[in-house]
């Protein structure tokens, strides 16, 4: 019988937190606008040959320079954001849906269902994720959607485990027990009592999942296994690999774009995690 802690000793961390969230959201909003307005703000098309090859940054009309064929690097980055963000968000959403359903079932029903689902989850989690994704993409054939599918398939297990842990602990909460005794149905209990209370950690993890999906997508594209018809940041860096000695800007700028995006998503995830749950979420 613990006495309820009345004195709150936590330092209010709101200003610090706000700053993190604001920076993250600002970068992400900028990225979103870039994606939506790509045809308007981009100086050229992504594949368009618009000048001499190997123009360094700050050349006329080519802020970030041109590549070995004379295509504008900035335009590539602007259009490349589309694939990164699309693949990132869609595959993360898919992973969260699969993970939430699997983890939710396992955690709510327990017993044999739990055993089977968790064996599967554990197994997939032991697999080298990136390796499995690469093999899947190679096997299915390269396209944006095969990349999405592969990433979703390898990244749902951690969501499932999180969701299961949440549901397991929620299931033994007294208000859930009370709802059971009052005769509320399974669906009602899950929808009104459990899901809303499990949302905070899921949202925080969602943002991280988007980040890691973007990273995986860029690695797949970098290795030349992605969809070669849609320009992406990873692909641009991959193509610049042989040009490192001639044109550093070809690899530096897309990389910085990736870096900023991931930083933004990480900041947002941390911010939300602390704000909603007050708990420290470990990152992976």
């Amino acid at each position: 019988m613990s006495q309820p802690q009345v004195l709150s000793l936590r330092k209010p961390a709101f200003r610090h937190l706000d700053l993190q969230l604001v920076i993250g959201c600002a970068i992400l909003t900028g990225l979103g606008l870039t994606v939506l307005l790509a045809p308007v703000i981009s100086p050229f098309g992504p594949w368009e040959i618009t000048g001499n090859p190997y123009l360094p940054p700050l050349s006329d009309a080519h802020l970030f320079g041109t590549d070995m064929l004379g295509r504008d690097v900035l335009s590539g980055i602007i259009y490349g954001a589309r694939v990164s963000l699309l693949v990132g968000i869609v595959s993360a959403l898919a992973a969260i849906c699969i993970g939430a359903v699997v983890g939710g079932f396992a955690g709510y029903f327990g017993g044999v269902v739990d055993d089977i689902l968790m064996r599967l989850t554990e197994f997939l989690q032991t697999m080298p994720g990136l390796g499995l994704a690469l093999v899947l993409v190679a096997v299915i054939g390269p396209s944006v959607w095969s990349v999405v599918l592969a990433i979703a398939l390898v990244s749902w297990p951690s969501v499932a485990r999180l969701m299961r842990a949440e549901f397991l602990s929620l299931r033994s909460r007294e208000y859930v027990l009370a709802a059971t005794v009052l005769g509320e149905s399974h669906w009602k209990i899950v929808w009104t009592h459990m899901l809303p209370n499990a949302l905070a950690p899921i949202i925080s993890v969602a943002s991280l999942k988007v980040a890691s999906a973007i990273l995986t997508e860029s690695t797949i594209s970098f290795l030349g296994l992605g969809d070669m018809n849609n320009i992406s940041w990873g692909m641009m860096i991959g193509m610049s690999q042989d040009q490192l000695r001639n044109a550093w800007w070809m690899s530096v700028f897309p990389g910085v774009a990736l870096l900023l995006t991931i930083i933004a998503l990480t900041l947002i995830s941390d911010g939300i995690g602390r704000w909603l749950g007050g708990r420290r979420q470990s990152l992976l």
Binding site: A211, L215, S218, T219, F222, L223, G234, I237, G238, S240, Q241, L244, S251, G255, L258, L259, I262, I263, T266, L283
Partner: peptide, 10 residues
């Protein structure tokens, strides 16, 4: 944490 591995290599 946010740097892609292949990019930092380059």
């Amino acid at each position: 944490y946010s740097i892609p591995v292949f990019w930092i290599g380059l």
